[in-house]
Amino acid sequence: MKLYFKYFALHLKSQMQYKITFALNILGRIVMSFATVTGVLFMLTRFHEVDGFTVSQVLLCTSVVSMAFSVAEVFARGFDIFPQLLGNGEFDRALVRPRGIIFQILASHIEFIRLGIFMQAAAVLCYAIPKSGVNWTPNKIVTLVLMITCGAAVFFGLYIVYASFAFFTTEGLEFMNILTHGGREFGRYPFAIYGGGVLKFLTYIVPLALFQYYPLLYLLGRTQNSFYMLAPILALVFLIPCYAFFRAGLRRYKSTGS
């Protein structure tokens, strides 16, 4: 962990070498991500509510998913650009160093400019929290924190899956974007609005709904079931197959080269 902070400090230092670029990039991302919010607002000014969720409630959902996604984007950047690491030999470098592979990939790429989305989402969240009609109790605050952290973990898992595919093929990896970027885009609205099939898929296969839809119901007081509150923790189970898949890919890499 100490080593991670060393990496962290070094990333900060090198990205601060170009302060203006850095600032403009962050600003750009904040502006850009407002498009997402305005999209939601336009929709809801026409329909007033989606599936019984009010504007502020949907914004709550939007911002939670955006925050989770951007945390993953900042910290799991190494997995996001993994095919590149395989191509330029950086991955081989990681293999000749006496540290865990996943650790090294995580630590070797941290992209702070992607925090822009996080800041914007946090602002929206601050707006939505008082207006969403949630009766805030300590339990609900814990739920909110779980939604964001476990959400980030699920997106992280998806990035690992993406990276693992890169061990097998370098083509057609874009389909994974449906789950990562798509997850964020569609996650603007509670997943239930897309129908039962999608909801089941996002519950049992790729557990995006476990940190979004179910705990949201708990937050809004639509259910008292504390299972819904803890659903985000259940979503962490998803990391196990992701990790296993990565190991399998790594084994293949070691036997094939590239």
Partner: peptide
């Protein structure tokens, strides 16, 4: 792997392990 790489040094002539901006 881990025990082994501790004892070796590797230079890939065409690839850098240095940080570009610091």
């Amino acid at each position: 792997r881990v025990a082994h790489v501790r004892e070796i040094g590797v230079v890939f002539g065409q690839r850098s392990q240095l940080w570009w901006d610091v």
